[in-house]
Design a protein around this nucleic acid. Structure first.
Lengths: 364, 364
DNA sequence: GCTTTGTTAGAAACTGGTTACTCAGCCCGG
DNA sequence: CCGGGCTGAGTAACCAGTTTCTAACAAAGC
């Protein structure tokens, strides 16, 4: 067993020009041989350690040598392998984000906020979409985590027991719109209850006492939260009547509810989200109902188009970008080994636009 | 220099339970030691090679041994390091996408399409946003490529010469909305000219002869393409008068243009994109102008809300998801070493909704 | 019974970096 | 003039997998 005649030496001796050899390994290894640190070291007449030091800006290399190494690297078009680097350093400088649905503006903005904040520290973002598929979500999370140094799980649908069992393998982990009581997993969420309360207070101040709720999908936890908050808010006000209509989450769902809204006799509509409110606005318009003259409508989320509906939609705004940014802050803290800081329950901001107004005379 | 007493053996002997040792390396290495293939091999009483074979489902392992290995792996909560695996295999099973702006629906849908298609082959997606910053874009591209097996560059702003120089280092590479003539880099793009031509033909068929264009940002290549196509389409029709108004890309830009549109005397508006058209719709409404009764308005892009404006917007739809999906097909082919298939110039589909109608009587 | 063949599993080289340790050489003080 | 301290660079171990080559062993054939 000779230790001197290793394969690499033979290889570089046998094929200095690299012809059209089919490539021993997988498809990624195309025809570009991509210089290695060893090749550069050889060319510069130094050891691999020195090349590494030069590439990482270590000051303990003589200027003349460093220049020679840099010249060789330049000459060979050398680019250190980030995979090898990750292996040696035990760090990938990548974090993962898992979202249920990339077409949801909420997650799009979280993605933006997180990506931007992470980029500031030289971290890149791996994105995966679970397509609301609970079974896949857990597998996806584990796999994504294995490729990166940390994970952000947005609005996970995974059952609590499973999430709890997984949380160790997923750490460093940050949860969005989901908490895990008793664990030390940082969690950022939106205080939907407070947003609903603000909307109700606003409607009450305009004199509304009969409210109809256009409910979101039954399976949605955010719908459950909003609905519960609405019930609580109405229960607290003795003269508040709440009607609940099963509706959905889309424009068409809201649009189809217009007649039922009228039949309810309510003077104000609280929609599960802005899309539903938007649809209701459209349906009511077609029925000749003036908003806010005859009926007030409020949405939730402040999607980008809410300010452009006719009339512009009163809604509760949630700091979606901020959610992503703060998720990064938590993750960064965890990556550094420190505590992640307090959980935050973001307060939605009530945006009063033109779709809500005083109760019509004689209908209070 | 003994070759037998290697550090790992000493380590595992000295700290079998792993106390609260601070961890020699970076922050990623938290307190969870994360079983390695060596540890599993030891526990199962086999060699690392055998564990590797079992984990990869090689059939050349006796059933009894395989079971023992699996049990050991289970026991130790073993998860093979994907980084080490990537290094050994020369493949990361990750591709990167670089977009100028994550808030643009176009890129959001490309992201979704690409992510979904790649996931089907077990590939994950790394996302980076260049924020329209040309200088950063090239650096980002190189870096993103180094972390993955392939790259999709969406609407890159990089100058042609630089892109050409880079294309070797970035391969396998797929370009979206950008071509690189003479290279063999696959390119998928949208035939904006055809979309504009379809809109103009539609307007012509309704009797419109005086058209006003609400131009996008001067720096935008897609604006240049749309504008040029519009000029060409109008030049081809002898009785077509085209007015061009500098406008922008946002709702507010379109909104602010309403008066200028009226002054132009045109009977139809072609907007740079749907947002501008949407703003124009709103501005015209405020001026008491009926659409399409007094004036027709057409957008471009078919953003998700275009069907919900009042009136619903006539526009040209581009298959954004499909762009992502096909980008994956090209990349996948390149990863396999094959040719990437033909470039595609996607044809926008004209969607006639209610914002366009016949020329008002007496104004043709 | 001995060779041939086929299977299985292990040893060791390999992926491409980083870094602890070591040691040669130089400068300087005693 | 010699030993100690400092500097700079090389050696080799290390990260955690995969894979080639090889050898041991069993079964089959002659």
């Amino acid at each position: 067993m000779s230790l001197t005649g290793d394969r690499r030496a033979e290889q570089s001796a046998e094929e200095p020009t690299d012809g059209s050899r089919p490539g021993r390994r997988g498809p990624a290894r195309s025809d570009r041989p991509s210089a290695t640190i060893g090749r550069v070291a050889e060319a510069a007449g130094v050891s691999r350690a020195t090349v590494s030091r030069v590439m990482n800006g270590s000051p303990t290399v003589a200027a003349e040598l460093a220049a020679r190494v840099r010249a060789a690297a330049e000459e060979l078009n050398y680019e250190p392998s980030l995979v090898a680097r990750s292996l040696a350093l035990g760090r990938t400088s990548t974090v993962s984000l898992i979202v249920p649905d990339l077409s949801n503006p909420m997650f799009q903005d979280v993605l933006r906020g997180l990506s931007h904040a992470a980029a500031g520290r030289g971290y890149r973002l791996l994105v995966a979409e679970s397509n609301e598929n609970v079974a896949e979500e857990a597998i996806l999370a584990v796999e994504a985590r294995r490729r990166s140094d940390g994970l952000v799980l947005a609005s996970p649908r995974v059952p609590e027991a499973e999430l709890r069992a997984l949380s160790d393998r997923l750490a460093p982990l940050v949860l969005l719109n989901r908490d895990l009581p008793g664990s030390n997993v940082p969690s950022l969420s939106v205080d939907y209850a407070a947003g609903i309360a603000a909307i109700v207070a606003h409607l009450r101040s305009l004199g509304h006492r009969r409210i109809v709720y256009l409910a979101g999908p039954a399976a949605s936890t955010s719908n459950r939260e909003r609905q519960a908050a609405l019930r609580a808010a109405c229960a607290a006000e003795p003269v508040c009547a709440l009607t609940e209509l099963p509706c959905g989450a889309t424009f068409d769902d809201g649009h189809a509810s217009a007649r039922a809204v009228l039949r309810s006799g309510a003077t104000a509509v609280v929609a599960f989200n802005d899309m539903v409110a938007f649809g209701a606005l459209s349906g009511l318009h077609e029925l000749g109902i003036g908003v806010p003259r005859d009926l007030s409508v409020a949405g939730f989320d402040d999607i980008p188009f809410a300010r452009y509906t006719t009339p512009p939609l009163t809604t509760a705004s949630i700091p979606r970008n901020e959610l992503g940014r703060q998720a990064w802050d938590r993750l960064w803290a965890l990556l550094g080994g420190g505590p992640a800081g307090h959980d935050v329950h973001f307060q939605p901001r009530l945006l009063v636009r033109d779709s809500t107004g005083p109760v019509p005379a004689g209908r209070g």
